[in-house]
Write a protein that binds this DNA or RNA. Sequence first.
DNA 1: CGTTCTTACGTGTGTCGTAACGATC
DNA 2: GATCGTTACGACACACGTAAGAACG
Lengths: 310, 310
Amino acid sequence: MELRQLRSLVTLVESDCNVSRAAERLYMVQSAVSQHILRLEEELGVHLFMRQGKRITGLTDAGEKVLQHARRVLAETGNILDVGRDHVEDRSGILRIGTTHTQARYVLPPIVKRFNRDYPRVELQIHQASPRQLVGMALENQVDFAICTEDLADQPRLTTVPSYQWNRSVIAPPGHPLLLEDTIDLPALCRYPIITYVTGFTGRGHFDRILHKAGLEPHIVLTAASTDIIKTYVRERMGIGIIASMAYAPERDADLACRDLSHLFPWEVTRIAYPEGKYLRRYQEHFIALFKRDIAERVSREQQPGMRPV
Amino acid sequence: MELRQLRSLVTLVESDCNVSRAAERLYMVQSAVSQHILRLEEELGVHLFMRQGKRITGLTDAGEKVLQHARRVLAETGNILDVGRDHVEDRSGILRIGTTHTQARYVLPPIVKRFNRDYPRVELQIHQASPRQLVGMALENQVDFAICTEDLADQPRLTTVPSYQWNRSVIAPPGHPLLLEDTIDLPALCRYPIITYVTGFTGRGHFDRILHKAGLEPHIVLTAASTDIIKTYVRERMGIGIIASMAYAPERDADLACRDLSHLFPWEVTRIAYPEGKYLRRYQEHFIALFKRDIAERVSREQQPGMRPV
DNA sequence: CGTTCTTACGTGTGTCGTAACGATC
DNA sequence: GATCGTTACGACACACGTAAGAACG
């Protein structure tokens, strides 16, 4: 068995079982990849791929199993290379972050900026996806860190680092009747059409559960994956917006009133996740430290009510 | 980077950093192993080993890190080979069991016998070690299964399967004054010299904690790692023996009286552990199933009071 | 002086690329 | 006929073994 062969196997699967395309990605000719697979199958004594004539159509059961282990082999060889890179030159490299729109737009910017100042020669990549996708991307080593709130707790093959906590706020156009209330409670919220996040995003799960427990049926008039969309329709007076508190920017959103709702909903924990056992390069550890430090500073500086350190 | 190189690295460390001996184990000449290490160091740009002149004296920090990942790479390639073996011939292979004396001597025999009847062409290896050592052996893939009671719970990189529960019994020569008591309690036990297991073995931890909580100071006159030794000195009338209940064999130990102590101590859980993510061959899964089934049958058949299924 | 590791060099295996062939849609 | 995968073959690279050299106790 050779690492090359495993590399070909994984790339082939990621190229929809198209040998030609896999070969391109690997900067090799088709025949080489083909041979890798054939030799691997020969050595193991199992067909890893199902074929119709000569067309490869998919993985066999054995292929699925081998693929999983092959992925981990490659991940670990990647870790070994990273140990080397860190000793040769620990100030440059790539940092691939997978995260949701909310984090990328409202939380990461100051952190990323500072990180870039500390490590100007590290190339930063921000990949945007849904929490569920992010879990897969972290596991398949398509990103170094997955940063989000959902789906990360108790994930068996991921190490997760809690980075900060946040809660929700309600936004509404100035003069909206909700804003006249002294203290906002759940029934008050449910008296108006609500615009909030799509299921699976940004604390939507707990939001639904709390309202359901209270026996309330909110009138959710529109949902979106990103806060910008929500704000847009709140401005259009389609309803009140329930958003993550850190997504309210006082300057830019001066035309929207905002009220904290921390007393109504549980605090959400945003986590940084990476594959269990992954070797963290110096700058990767630095990023995690920076994340926590920045949140702590921001909270104490801006007195933001809907956000707090872990 | 090549798998061969990683293999050489791991073997070299397991050969006390002696290149000649590592080469022997790998059926290669010294120079080949030497080259593997040098090329790997060259590619990574780090010294993995510390040297005094040409003598290799130990791993560097980077070497330690690389070693860990290299071990996992090899474990995963082993899993891949196992997937193949299972499809080629799933009735023969090797099963390496690491366990303590108590399990090997008093619990495993009927299970092993039955397993051998089901899979006569699987070579069984039983490696005996302390619970602490067993954890290391499982992690470093020196055994397939580690079976013991201590040190396995919440081990991060091991999957553990609870297999059965057991409690303690006291053994004493016939006519011993303790046997006249109606119900035996902790103070009663502490009135006599006690012979039991060494710290770290067979439930000794909970034993100590319970007595300490009760404010009792037992007079422990002798400790041993295996029940046979304990029995021997109980026969010599050096004291009463506190042993795992399954270690009392009514026929063979007819010259010793035995009383169950389940009412005094917490139940211990014996677990089967293997590296997280390990591919289990057919016969390995069968062994685990057999283990549980056999215990259930034994308990219901023999009405053994100090043993129960999970 | 034996042990231990590295370096030098030749041989053979094996991998990759070119190219032709065979299959499938 | 176009796309796709396998087979055949040659060139090159490289890993291993032999053997000599260098460093330590």
